[in-house]
Design a binder for these strands. Structure first.
Length: 825
RNA sequence: GCGGGCGUGGCGGAAUGGCAGACGCUGCGGACUUAAACUCCGUUGGGGAGACCCGUGCGGGUUCGACUCCCGCCGCCCGCACCA
């Protein structure tokens, strides 16, 4: 009893804190901007500090950490930075609810989440952390704003925003759910007109569209951005009104202008009040009033088989091509926010116009006849025709094909001064004002003599006062903060008032990754040299929910920053990967308010962070996500224990010389095949199958450790490879095992094992032998066997001989290293 | 309506046109234990005593060979949606 060697037992509760402290003391995650190695920024969308991390966060952060660690072992100087997107509504809401200051709430959450990132074992250099609600950071939001103001990219204009009558506040679009419901209190919200600040993202529409082509991003995200940007080619046409005004419309089908039999204005169109005749006034006013109370969703939905509605204004326009007098209607299917807010209606060629015409008995004139089938007749046709065909009823263009006529028509309209080619965009300028407290103050003042004056750069930051009253009152909270609001004009020195709106928090996240390169620079948002070492970002990971807004804004900011001459980068993120969402066990979103969050702390206490990391990797394809379950986590613990046992027992075996036996060759082959699988699967984000490869490897080693091979140096090499391959996925236990192997600290500063295809080949392989495509037997052949060798071996098999004895052989297929198939009749 | 994705055991899932269900969980049987937990071994798609047969949403097709490719359906999920 006394002389038995004490067996070490895997105990994550002991080894995880031990190595966490050691890593911190040794600062092994400290990142330098330049080393001898190529830089690789492995960026993950920084979290909102909403409380503690749940397993969904771990899924989003620990798996990119695995990738980053593998990259580091593969010879890159890797930065896996982290920060906190810490301005925003939830801090205010929590503050109001719990009567705690947003700053206190935010910083407490940051502390909690930082602890959990460390628990996870994430490879984060905290010296580089970015906290966006820190004046040191948001100062540069203000600086960028001033630069954009200078370049005319920031401007102030009227606009309508969502208003919640219950909370007495304006809401961001993201805070409005189900069309018109306040996300926070459930009240019905509506739109109000307010003066707002905008950024001219539309100036970059074409480049934002074109730039997508060269990016290694999920096609889905690129498509969503293309749809959002929404480029349409067409023409702008001018219609004369009877009162002398002209009405411009945008159309993608200028070739159908001869079929325009009426016009439609959006109810909000400025002409509505001016052109409506006295007889129609009452009906029009009522319609406009009704349209305003409808939500966008109601107005735009098509699936409630809702009929078109509209009202005649009493006014007429002149069709510029044939001088036809056509009525002007208003209808809510025309949107003020797209094109010119007015359309020429061509019922024969447009489904919506067709429905409207039938509903209100307006004339329908076909302008394109399909080349096959019955000719269309405006009186009898049952749906609009969009296809190609022969142009009719169109004066000089009759007889051309539709595709021929289109460019000619634009040319002709142009010559007549009645229109020109135009490109229309769905993308709107970015509204950045928020009537909220917890955000970056917009750095301008209003002076009675000088008007709007930007705060000079050397007076930045305009600090957000911490002692403001921020409960919702119906206006920007800072308005009531006298010492903030009242200031002097930087131009004339007279009395002035500060802007009290704050910036959209998407501004913060539009450039934060540049800051990681030089997080403490107090002379500029980032140091150019340092930023160029790390940009463009090699890999960006995050949720699909940011497919449009954040990723589009970030691309926009990057281009603006480039045009400010600050960095030579066109696109911020070369490669993008989206994780799926981890749902609660019942398949719903893991929302905090509904108490469906699964916390990692208990799981780590019970199973260890390494096992939890493996479990998250193993749940399924990372890009897919799915409902959470903790059933499989015990399997991951078993795997770790087995690996631990293999390493632990190695210490007790003696090393001899390599014998060159088949067993040794076979083990080395397995080792190298595993290296290849693990490496390839990390590259392709197949973390679940990477874990499978490791498990299979350990299972084999478990069997082999009962054989003589354990005395061979080949065995030791195979075990060391196991530990290295596990290092990214299970950083704690890998470090422990590395130490058990007598290796110097740290396993995370070692090189990734190198795959050697020559060593990965077994002496012999087993291949299936099929008769008529059905497996009937297997045969062992030397691994270099030719097709003929395989076939001969297969045909020598007793079972095969019996099966083909009295049959005619039609065909024999032999694929070296794969199979043999004999087709018989 | 348009665009994209996905349908494989009890469950999560795996398969460059080449042994379907790797790997894990669960279940079952066994070893160890006074007992249990842990651990280890075996087994685990369905049918059949068995040789074998059936089986990747459904129906066709291409191929020596199809989860994989093609055509036509069905179902589910996501995005966009009266964008002129």
């Amino acid at each position: 009893m006394t002389d038995t060697i004490e067996e070490k037992v895997y105990d994550p509760a002991v080894i995880e804190p031990k190595w966490r402290a050691k890593w911190q003391d040794a600062a092994i995650y400290k990142v330098e901007n330049t080393t001898g190695q190529p830089n690789w920024m492995s960026l993950t969308m920084y979290p909102y500090p909403s409380g503690v991390l749940h397993v969904g966060h771990w899924f989003a952060f620990s798996i990119p950490d695995v990738f980053a660690r593998a990259q580091r072992m593969r010879g890159y100087n890797v930065m896996y930075p982290m920060g906190f997107d810490s301005f925003g509504l939830p801090a205010e809401n929590a503050a109001i609810k719990h009567n705690i200051h947003p700053a206190k709430w935010t910083y407490e959450n940051i502390d909690d989440m930082t602890r959990q990132f460390d628990l996870m074992g994430a490879m984060i250099d905290w010296d580089r952390k970015v906290i966006t609600c820190d004046p040191e950071y948001y100062k540069w939001n203000q600086w960028f704003f001033l630069k954009m103001l200078e370049k005319g990219l920031a401007y102030r204009a009227g606009g309508s925003v969502w208003w919640c009558p219950n909370d007495q506040t304006v809401l961001a679009n993201e805070q409005v759910v189900d069309g018109n419901i306040c996300d926070r209190c459930g009240a019905e919200v509506y739109k109000r007109d307010l003066e707002q600040w905008y950024l001219r993202i539309t100036d970059y529409a074409q480049e934002l569209l074109d730039g997508l082509d060269g990016l290694d991003w999920p096609e889905r995200v690129k498509t969503m951005q293309r749809n959002w940007i929404g480029r349409s080619e067409g023409a702008r046409l001018s219609f004369a009104l009877e009162d002398g005004k002209t009405l411009d419309v945008f159309t993608t089908r200028p070739d159908t202008v001869f079929g325009a039999t009426f016009m439609v204005l959006a109810p909000e169109h400025p002409y509505v009040a001016e052109i409506t005749t006295p007889e129609q006034r009452a009906a029009v006013d009522e319609y406009v009033k009704k349209a305003r109370t409808k939500t966008e969703i109601e107005r735009q939905s098509t699936d409630v088989d809702r009929q078109k509605s509209g009202v005649f204004t009493g006014a007429y326009a002149i069709n510029p091509v044939n001088d036809a007098r056509i009525p002007i209607w208003i209808a809510d299917y025309v949107l003020m926010t797209y094109g010119t807010g007015a359309i020429m209606a061509v019922p024969s060629g447009d489904t919506r116009d067709f429905e409207f015409a039938r509903q209100f008995d307006l004339p329908i004139i076909p302008t394109v006849q399909p080349t096959n089938g019955e000719p269309l007749d405006g009186a009898t046709m049952t749906e609009a025709y969009h296809g190609d065909g022969i142009v009719v009823n169109s004066g000089p263009f009759d007889g051309m094909t539709q595709s021929e006529a289109l460019p000619k028509m634009i040319e002709w309209l142009s010559e007549q001064g009645r229109g020109q080619a135009e490109i229309s965009w769905r993308l709107r300028d970015w509204l950045i004002s928020r009537q909220r407290y917890w955000g970056t103050p917009i750095p301008v003042v209003y002076c009675d003599t000088c008007g709007m004056v930007p705060v000079p750069e050397d007076q930045l930051p305009v600090v957000l006062p911490l002692d403001a009253e921020f409960k919702p009152t119906g206006q920007s909270p800072l308005i009531t903060h006298e010492s903030f609001v009242n200031t002097t004009c930087p131009q004339c020195g007279g009395a002035a008032r500060r802007e009290t709106d704050t910036m959209d928090t998407f501004i913060d996240s539009s450039w934060y990754w540049f800051r990681y390169a030089s997080p403490h620079d107090d002379t500029a948002p980032f140091d150019r040299i340092a930023a160029e070492e790390w940009n463009p970002v090699a890999l960006y990971c995050g949720g699909i929910e940011h497919a449009i807004l954040h990723l589009l804004y970030a691309r926009f900011f990057t281009k603006v920053i480039r045009d400010l001459g600050m960095i030579d980068v066109d696109e911020p993120f070369s490669r993008l990967r989206n994780q799926g969402m981890i749902l609660s066990e019942d398949g719903r979103k893991m929302s905090k308010s509904r108490g469906r969050q699964i916390g990692p702390d208990e799981l780590v206490a019970a199973h260890g962070a390494d096992a939890l990391r493996l479990h998250l990797m193993f749940l399924g394809p990372w890009e897919q996500g799915g409902p959470w379950n903790d059933r499989g986590i015990t399997g991951m613990e078993r795997f770790i224990r087995r690996a631990y046992t293999v390493v632990e027992e190695l210490g007790t075996t003696q090393s001899g010389a390599a014998s060159g036996s088949d067993a040794e060759r076979s083990l080395t082959a397995l080792q190298h095949r595993t290296i290849k699988r693990a490496t390839d699967q990390i590259d392709s984000f197949g973390f679940n199958t990477m874990v499978s490869a490791l498990i299979e490897y350990v299972n084999e080693l478990m069997k082999l450790k009962e054989t003589d091979i354990v005395t061979s140096p080949v065995w030791r090499d195979a075990v060391e490879t196991l530990v290295l391959l596990m290092a990214p996925a299970t950083p704690y236990v890998a470090e422990e095992m590395w130490e058990m192997l007598g290796k110097p600290f740290s396993v995370h500063q070692q090189s990734w094992p190198v795959y050697d295809s020559a060593l990965a080949v077994e002496a012999t392989i087993e291949i299936p032998v099929q008769i008529n495509g059905k497996v009937r037997d297997r045969v062992i052949v030397p691994s270099g066997a030719t097709a003929d060798d395989q076939l001969a071996a297969a045909r020598a098999l007793e079972k095969v001989v019996a099966l083909i004895a009295d049959k005619q052989i039609v065909k024999e297929i032999s694929v070296p290293g794969r199979l043999v198939n004999i087709v018989i009749k």
